[in-house]
């Protein structure tokens, strides 16, 4: 019989307070406390990190190759995106106004609406 080599943990980390958690890699550890002790030094020795998650791999429910079929979509959903409303640009021009596009709207952060 071969030796037990613990269990697999998936390691996630945040680089900055505003960043989303990113998957880093996996490691073998006997339990989650040990997994946490190993995580930073194994995968983030040289980069900033503000938070870490370790998740036992058996607790992750992913997609089987077959189930990945559920991710397929028809390319007929431009009503969900700005692409379906591009004609407004010309319309607004007629009213001598500019369209509020994504770039414009996202520039309003911090209440600074010029």
């Amino acid at each position: 019989m071969t030796e037990t080599f613990y269990q697999e943990f998936e390691v996630f980390s945040k680089r900055t307070p505003n960043a989303a958690f990113t998957h880093q890699f996996s490691l073998l550890a006997p339990n989650k406390e040990m997994a946490l002790l190993m995580a930073q030094e194994n995968f983030m020795r040289r980069e900033p990190v503000v938070d870490i998650w370790v998740v036992k791999r058996t607790d992750v429910r992913g997609l089987t190759p077959d189930e990945k079929q559920m991710l397929t979509r028809l390319d007929n959903k431009d009503y969900r995106t700005t692409k379906g409303y591009g004609y407004l640009k010309k319309k607004w021009r007629h009213y001598e106004q500019q369209m509020l596009d994504e770039k414009e709207i996202m520039s309003w952060q911090g209440g600074d609406s010029k």
Binding site: L28, M38, N42
Partner: peptide, 11 residues
Amino acid sequence: PHIEEDVASSS
């Protein structure tokens, strides 16, 4: 005793 620990304790 364990590769992951080798890396961690080296720090």
